[in-house]
Structure formats: structure tokens, C-alpha cells
Design a protein around this nucleic acid. Sequence first.
RNA 1: GGAGAGGUGGCCGAGUCCGGUUGAAGGCGCUCGACUCGAAAUCGAGUAAGGGGUGCUGAGCCCCUUCGUGGGUUCGAAUCCCACCCUCUCCGCCA
Length: 428
Amino acid sequence: MKHLLDLKFIRSNQDKVKKAMADRHYDFDLDQLLVWDEQRRSLIAESEQLKNRRNTLSQEVGRLKAAKQDASELQEEVRGIGKRIKELDQELAELEQKLNNALLMIPNIPHETVPVGEDEEDNLVLRVEGEPPKFSFEPRPHWEIGEKLDILDFARGVKVAGARFTVLKGWGAKLERALVNFMLDLHTREHGYTEIFPPFLVNRATMTGTGQLPKFEEDLFLCQREDLFLVPTAEVPVTNLYSSEILAAEQLPIYHTAYTACFRAEAGAAGRDTRGLIRQHQFNKVELVKFTTPEDSYMELEKLTNDAEEVLQRLGLAYRVVSLCTGDLGFSAAKTYDLEVWLPAAGCYREISSCSNFEDFQARRANIRYRPEHGARPRFVHTLNGSGLAVGRTLAAILENYQQEDGSVVVPEVLRPYIGVDVISCET
RNA sequence: GGAGAGGUGGCCGAGUCCGGUUGAAGGCGCUCGACUCGAAAUCGAGUAAGGGGUGCUGAGCCCCUUCGUGGGUUCGAAUCCCACCCUCUCCGCCA
């Protein structure tokens, strides 16, 4: 990894960066970083000056030797210069290590349209879509419905793996698969996305590219022997598909959709959402990922969000769209819209998709660039992604929203071609 | 996992044995120009990235780094030595 982060920007926009940190309630010693930056540049200047001299003298040595003349005095001098360069470069490498580590801990700067706020209480509800269903009975939570229908098996999930692992069975497994296929078909056939099936294990560089590392290692599952991580979202492998590449302008925008299982350690979530499918160590998700020019990224964020919303609309699920405030914004995101689906049993809206514009934050880390026109200097692309949707939570929402008094569940119309039945009941 | 071969610019491909204007021949592609009514062909010119400095702030200019990655030897490394990664071929193993 080279110098992917924009020190120049930070240097010349100190106030902006400091305000962004404050709005995020993020503690960071920017002044220390700027001191290191200063030191770095002076070391570089000194070292390069010496290198220039070494190159010149070495050539001179070559000339003398070719002419059969004595060059030992010059050689002695250059040897000294070489030693000094080595010292300086070592010092520089250590400094850059510190600098780089610090830079990787700086979160993205929120977009100007992001509401400033403390926590999720301050998120801005942009719109509410669809009607929550009315029930003539007390709606049950999805885990009760699922267990009664024998399509969700929580106990055996715990037995074979542990807490927060669940087994889908029979129509439950089929419904999950139907949802994946429905979502992929919608996005590939109607929204113009190209389907990707990526690796589920990735290396450290990849995890760093999208911002999971170095700060959030405890949230990930690690295969220690190979030093590979299980992907927490398809965003990670798919965004990094083009790392260290320079794309042609004509290639943009790139739209990718990908199904993967997602693995999250859920460290720090102990005791939260312990029942049901809402918070699992492993869940399925269909992800949407975009690579765009800086000019188009916010327009593309709106479109991407609409593409995710369309899944909920076609499934006939009520939801709302929320703009996350600065205090609730993820580390890498410049702006995020959450889609929250209506869950009747809990009587509230729960996050089912998160659609973000990362601007050039991930592109810098992963070194993803494009050439605006032939011969022009490369620029960083903007990356975006969003769930379209989290499948486990969608399944939960369907069970709850489409439940009937007898415990059966009506299959949403659009899924029937995929699953072959209209209703899931004990007799099905 | 074992044996062998190899990783050079957008691509192909020399150079590596015998270290010295080689940031790198040649070709292809691409861009611009000439020719043409236009095109093809042909001819001419151009065509890496990152970093530092300067600055009328991305015009220009100067410098440094980069030939898979990281070390080492040397006055000097694409070229020599070591480690690691990756690709290909054969063998083994395997869904």
C-alpha cells in the first residue's frame, strides 16, 4: 500500500476535517498528524537531494572506470552518502508507517447535506412508503411463526454452530432462495446491474480497501492460519474488484450486484436482538455496488436507493427512508440512506438496507481510478453500495407482514413463480 | 503439497549469462497531424504512474522512486544474492 490518502487535502482543509470529526463525535489528534506530515516532507527533501548527488557521482565513477582512471576517492564519498540515505530512508519509513496508520483511522467527511446529530434519534425521516397491514388478531413475531411452520430451526442452529446461527428448513429454505433469485433477477434484468459471484474470504488489503480494517477487526471472522477474513458484506470483494486499476471513462458507471453470505462477529451486540433472524453471525444479502465519476455519484445514490426500494415495493412491504445523521454515519460513508421495513410484531421500522455514497474514500484506500479522457491524469472514482436487500431480514418481514390468523403465511405475488406455492402452512 | 518454467510500460515482447545516459529496443493499440470527397493503406509526431520542490495552483520547469513484493551486495541493480507472493506446465490430492 502506497500513499493513497490525501495529505494535501487534509493539510489545506484542516478546519473542514476537524469539523467533520467533531460532527461525528470522533476523537482524533489531527495536529499530531500534521506535525508528522511536516517531518515527512523535510526528510524526503533531504533524502532526495542526497540521492540526486549519488546518482550524479555514480555516473562519474562509471566514466572514470571506463577511462581506466582511479575513482576510489569518489567511491568513498558516495559510500558515505549511501549510508546517510539509508538512515534517512529508514527514519522516513517509520514515520510513514505512523502516518499511514493514523490516516487509516480517519473516517470519511460527511456530505454537506447530512444532518448534524448525535445518534439515531437525530436521523431524518425522508419519506414513508406503503401501508402497514392491519390485523384482526395480535401479530406474532417471525420466530414464532417460523418455528410453528417448522421452517426456522433456531435450536439446531445453536447446536451445530452456536448462538446467532439459524437453520432454514423446507419452505423456509426455499423462500430464502426465492428471495435471492428474485432480487438478483430484478437488478440484473431491470436495473442494469451485472451479477458478480465473488469469493467469500478476502485478504487484509481488500478489507482495508473498503474500510473494515484496521479499525474494525473485532467485528470480523478471521481464518487465522491463512490470515483470511470472511466477508461481512459483498461490498468488500466487489468494490475491491478494481483495486489498483485505472478504468476508462467509457466504462463508468459500473453497476454490480452480488449475492453472498455475510459473516459478522457482532462484537458489542451482546444481548441485543437475541431472538429471531434480525441479528445473525451469518446471513444472506444481495448487494448493489456502483463505481461512478465524482460528478454523478449523488445522482447515482438516489437511483441506487430507488433500486433497493423497488424490492420492498414489489414485495408489498411498508417501509421508510431515513437519512443518517453525522453521529450515526458509518466510518467510510459520506452519506447514507437507510431503508427501514415495517415489522408488525415489534410495531416499528427496522433497518433492512443501507445505501451509501463513499465518494473517493474507498477509492483512495483501494486505489481505484479512472481516466476522464485520453491522456488526462487519472482521478479517483466514487464508490457506492447498498443492500438490495438483506435477505434474512426480508424473510422475517414477509413472515410477519403476510401472516394469517391460522399461522400460515401468504407468499407475496412476485415470489410465487420462484417458489411455486401461494401460501406456506403446516399442510403445504 | 512435489518438480520445472516464468512475472518488464495499455497489450505483446527484447534486455538478465558478461551490473554503468535502459524509464527501459522493437511491435501492436491509442491520440493528434499530413494525404483523401471520406475511409483504408501510408508517412510524421506523441503516448506510464506515484512522490517532493518551484509556481501566475494542477501551464510549465527541476528532482526522486518504481521492471511481481520485501530485503541484501555494490560507487552504481531490470540485470548478482536471499526470502515471500502470484501465474503457467507436469505429478499427487480433491468437490
